[in-house]
Measured scan of single mutants.
Amino acid sequence: RKEMTAACTPRRRIINLTSVLSLQEEINEQGHEVLREMLHNHSFVGCVNPQWALAQHQTKLYLLNTTKLSEELFYQILIYDFANFGVLRLSEPAPLFDLAMLALDSPESGWTEEDGPKEGLAEYIVEFLKKKAEMLADYFSLEIDEEGNLIGLPLLIDNYVPPLEGLPIFILRLATEVNWDEEKECFESLSKECAMFYSIRKQYISEESTLSGQQSEVPGSIPNSWKWTVEHIVYKALRSHILPPKHFTEDGNILQLANLPDLYKVFERC
């Protein structure tokens, strides 16, 4: 597991931080080997919608929660590849102030007048994250320049770009939802926020969305749709870069829909 690298990086740093090793061990302890084997050997059937997909393993048909699986995938990559990410360069710098204002204007932020003026909160978020810029760049390849612009994001899987519609809320939550006081809790909560931002979430995906850094293989055609990215990038990574937690067998994120021999018997009677 320590050699797990989802995106190509030129050289690998050895990380011996106790906090990170502890988080890696927790993933191992909570892992479910049968689910790992199923995901490793599954045959992708198709997307139901951005949140759900169908896959077959041996004779069984499964309904998989793409949102939760991708979130767990990105969390584990962030923990196992800690401080070893490439950088996704933004085509132009994104001012943190503008991103924070967009987030505060969104109902998702939960902002009320009692929280104070949005401009003041946005300025605080910019200054707060600028103070964390060195650590964010060093460990997470999340790059913020001296003017308070976001200029780079971590490359977690080759050819995958997170849904940038979720970027404003991500920046807001970096400042408000991460435990910045304790090292282990900081790395864990920061990785979880980043994983949620990178995950496939239906509120940020339309039929026209593209999450891939590449064009489709047909010359002159439109960019790959999110469905292509889910199948050929995300579920491909799920084959080798995730140890599913045991609770996925109990919380409805992986559901067995049918045993195909039983279905064949039904059709034979028709």
Rank of each mutant, 00 (worst) to 15 (best):
K2T: 14
E3H: 07
E3S: 12
M4I: 11
M4V: 09
T5K: 04
T5V: 05
A6H: 05
A7Q: 05
C8A: 10
T9R: 11
P10S: 06
P10H: 06
R13M: 05
L17P: 04
T18L: 08
T18E: 13
S22C: 08
S22H: 06
Q24A: 11
E25W: 14
E26R: 07
I27T: 06
I27D: 00
N28L: 15
N28E: 13
E29M: 12
Q30V: 15
Q30K: 10
H32T: 07
H32N: 12
H32C: 14
H32D: 15
E33P: 13
L35M: 13
L35G: 04
L35I: 08
E37Q: 09
E37I: 06
M38I: 13
H40T: 14
H40Q: 09
H42N: 05
H42G: 04
S43R: 09
S43H: 15
F44V: 03
V45N: 03
V45W: 04
V45P: 00
G46Y: 08
C47A: 14
V48K: 02
P50S: 14
P50E: 14
Q51A: 09
Q51L: 02
W52C: 03
W52G: 02
A53C: 07
L54S: 03
A55H: 01
A55C: 08
A55Y: 01
H57R: 04
T59P: 03
T59K: 11
T59A: 13
T59G: 11
Y62Q: 01
Y62D: 00
L63A: 05
L63W: 05
L64G: 00
N65Y: 03
N65G: 01
N65Q: 02
T66P: 01
T66R: 00
K68Y: 05
K68L: 10
L69Q: 00
L69N: 03
E71C: 06
E71N: 05
E72T: 08
Y75G: 02
Y75Q: 03
Y75L: 02
Y75C: 03
I77V: 12
Y80W: 14
F82H: 03
F82K: 00
N84D: 05
F85L: 15
G86M: 12
R89W: 11
E92T: 10
E92Y: 08
P93I: 06
P93C: 09
P93H: 08
A94V: 15
P95T: 07
F97L: 14
D98L: 06
L99E: 04
A100R: 00
A100V: 12
M101Q: 08
M101F: 05
L102P: 00
A103D: 01
A103E: 03
L104Q: 03
L104V: 07
D105M: 09
D105R: 08
S106Q: 11
S109F: 11
S109I: 13
G110Q: 12
W111F: 11
W111M: 11
W111A: 05
E113Y: 13
E113L: 12
E114F: 08
E114S: 09
D115K: 09
D115L: 06
P117N: 11
K118N: 05
K118Q: 12
K118C: 07
E119G: 10
G120W: 12
G120D: 09
L121C: 08
L121V: 10
A122S: 14
A122I: 05
A122L: 02
E123K: 10
I125G: 03
I125N: 04
V126R: 09
E127L: 11
E127F: 07
K130Y: 09
K131T: 09
K131A: 12
K131W: 14
L136Q: 02
L136V: 05
D138I: 05
D138G: 04
Y139F: 08
F140N: 01
F140A: 01
S141P: 02
L142I: 15
E143T: 08
E143Q: 13
E143Y: 09
D145Y: 02
E147L: 09
E147R: 09
E147N: 13
G148C: 10
G148S: 08
N149V: 11
L150P: 02
G152K: 05
G152Q: 05
L153H: 02
P154M: 01
L156C: 03
L156Y: 01
L156E: 01
L156H: 00
I157E: 02
D158S: 13
N159M: 08
Y160H: 02
Y160A: 00
V161Y: 07
V161N: 15
P162H: 01
P162N: 02
P162W: 01
P162I: 02
P163G: 04
P163W: 06
L167P: 01
P168T: 00
F170P: 01
I171K: 01
R173D: 03
R173L: 02
R173K: 12
A175L: 11
E177L: 05
E177Q: 06
D181N: 11
D181A: 15
E182A: 12
E183N: 03
E183D: 04
E183C: 03
K184M: 09
K184Q: 15
K184S: 08
K184G: 05
E185V: 08
F187H: 03
F187T: 03
F187Y: 06
E188M: 12
L190S: 02
L190K: 00
L190M: 08
L190R: 02
S191P: 01
E193M: 04
C194W: 03
C194N: 00
C194E: 01
M196V: 12
F197A: 00
Y198I: 00
R201Y: 01
R201K: 08
Q203Y: 06
Q203C: 12
Y204A: 04
I205F: 11
I205D: 03
S206F: 12
T210H: 06
T210M: 07
G213H: 12
G213L: 11
Q215H: 12
E217M: 13
E217Y: 10
E217Q: 08
P219G: 13
G220E: 15
G220D: 14
S221L: 14
S221A: 14
I222P: 12
I222Q: 14
N224Y: 15
N224K: 14
N224R: 15
N224P: 15
S225P: 14
W228Y: 12
W228L: 06
T229H: 05
T229L: 06
E231H: 04
E231K: 04
H232Q: 06
H232V: 03
H232N: 13
I233R: 10
I233Y: 04
A237N: 08
L238E: 00
R239A: 06
H241N: 09
H241E: 06
I242Q: 02
P244K: 01
K246S: 15
K246T: 15
H247G: 08
H247S: 13
F248M: 14
F248P: 01
T249P: 06
T249E: 15
E250W: 06
E250I: 09
D251Q: 10
D251R: 06
D251A: 07
G252R: 05
G252A: 14
N253Y: 15
I254T: 04
I254H: 02
L255G: 04
Q256R: 12
N259H: 11
N259K: 04
N259E: 13
L260H: 11
P261M: 06
P261Q: 14
P261H: 07
D262Q: 09
D262C: 08
K265H: 13
K265D: 15
K265T: 11
V266N: 15
F267R: 15
E268K: 06
E268N: 08
R269E: 15
C270S: 15
C270A: 14
C270D: 15
C270K: 15
C270Q: 14
